[in-house]
Structures are given as C-alpha cells and as structure tokens.
C-alpha cells in the first residue's frame, strides 16, 4: 500500500487519473500545473510537496518536491495534514473545504471555478487509491 504523496502513490494516482474517462471529459481543455502542499500539524512533522502537471484531461507528469522554490506552478493547493486525510477519506468535500478555509488555493481562481467538476474528480480518483498515511 503506497504512502500518501510518495513517488509510488503519485505513479498510481497518475495511472488512475489517466484511465478516468470522466476526468478526461471534465478537464478536456484544462491547462495548468499544481503544487499540492501538506502542512504539518500534530500528526505530521515536516511538510510534503507534490507537483502535478495537468494538461487537456491527462496528468503529464508528477513527482515529489523537496524544495518548493524549485517549481513555479500555476496553482498551489495547500492544507493541514489532518484535513488532507479527511479529504482522502471523503469526509471533506473539496469545494466546501476551500470555502470554509480548510484548504487554500492560489492561482487563477476564475479558471478553477470553470473546472469545478474536474476538481471533484481529482479528489475522487485520489480516494480510489489504497493509501497508507504517514504517522509521526
């Protein structure tokens, strides 16, 4: 079982995402790369960073980032580790999570608003992966 945001987890995520016809339909015209940031809290010591390049309904590339200044993504999505866990367990809706401030998004918000369905599918695909969560 891959650990959340490990290289193995990202490979599996990209595989599932690229197999999703739903995502391909919803993000057909999407262009924009993301940095996902897991902020430490009482359950996690150090932050985690994952880069994902999403282009026209596919994930072109994705990897673990050690130093976030090495990448310059169009979007950044960040939240505390405990909230990421809730997101992956389906306990937080991604849109509600953003509206209620559990997650923060940087980038062209207006563009994201037009791809709300794709954003939901991105999370649903992550929920399909049997994930082991790192413990402190």
């Amino acid at each position: 079982m891959p650990e959340l945001f490990s290289e193995e987890w990202i490979r599996e995520y990209i595989k599932f995402l690229n197999e999703s016809s739903e995502y391909q339909e919803a993000a057909r015209d999407w262009e924009g790369d993301f940095l996902f940031v897991v902020e430490p809290d009482e359950e996690l010591e150090r932050p985690m960073y994952v880069y994902l390049d999403l282009h026209h309904g596919k994930a072109r590339n994705g990897y673990v980032v050690n130093d976030p200044s090495e990448v310059n993504p169009a979007f950044e999505f960040r939240g505390k580790y405990s909230n990421w866990k809730k997101l992956i367990y389906g306990e937080i809706d991604p849109i509600k999570g953003l509206v209620s401030g559990k997650f923060k998004l940087k980038g062209n918000m207006a563009k994201v608003m037009r791809y709300a369905r794709a954003a939901k599918i991105l999370v649903e695909v992550a929920q399909k992966i049997e994930t082991r969560f790192p413990e402190k």
Partner: peptide
C-alpha cells in the same frame, strides 16, 4: 481585481 476573481476561494 478582475470581477471574475471574486470567487468563494478568494481571500
């Protein structure tokens, strides 16, 4: 800001 940037996620 452009009007479209008034989104639920914008602080």
């Amino acid at each position: 800001i452009p009007p479209e940037e008034i989104t639920p996620f914008t602080d």
